[in-house]
């Protein structure tokens, strides 16, 4: 009985934790957060960092004409909400040797907002439609 209660409590805790990490991001707030990225990135063209149009579903380190760090060029993952969340939380820990010298975005809500905006902007924005 006690064991059953413990399992039920654990399951409830897990579902609460899952709910808190799966809050959908707000792209409007994400747009403001993207301002932090604009020292090095643009949607439609390569700068100090690679362009973001077409980001979702693209293999990491694969924008043509961009000079990646060896670490990113050899990365073996594809950009999606999950990999972006992990990378944006701590770029240097996720891809050791990356030249993205940025501490990361600690707040999961801010990451979700930014990812929601990136999902829209990198496919639907006029800048990305032109390229």
């Amino acid at each position: 009985m006690r064991c059953g209660l413990a399992v039920a409590l654990l399951a409830a805790q897990c579902s609460i934790a899952a709910a808190s990490t799966s809050v959908p991001g707000d792209p409007a707030r994400g747009a403001a957060i993207y301002d932090r990225c604009t020292a090095c990135h643009a949607l439609a063209y390569n700068r100090t960092g690679p362009k973001h149009c077409g980001l979702f579903g693209r293999r990491a380190g694969s924008v043509p004409g961009f000079d990646y760090s060896p670490a990113m060029a050899q990365a073996k993952f594809t950009w999606n909400a999950e990999t972006l969340d992990r990378f944006l939380k701590n770029p240097g820990r996720t891809v050791p040797g990356t030249t993205m010298g940025y501490a990361g975005i600690a707040d999961p809500r801010e990451r979700a907002d930014l990812i929601a905006w990136l999902r829209q902007a990198t496919t639907e924005s006029p800048d990305c439609r032109r390229h």
Partner: peptide
Amino acid sequence: AGLEKGAVSAYLGAVPL
């Protein structure tokens, strides 16, 4: 102004590293 704002964020993100 956009470039400078981005630069501020970039340095802010780099300082702790």
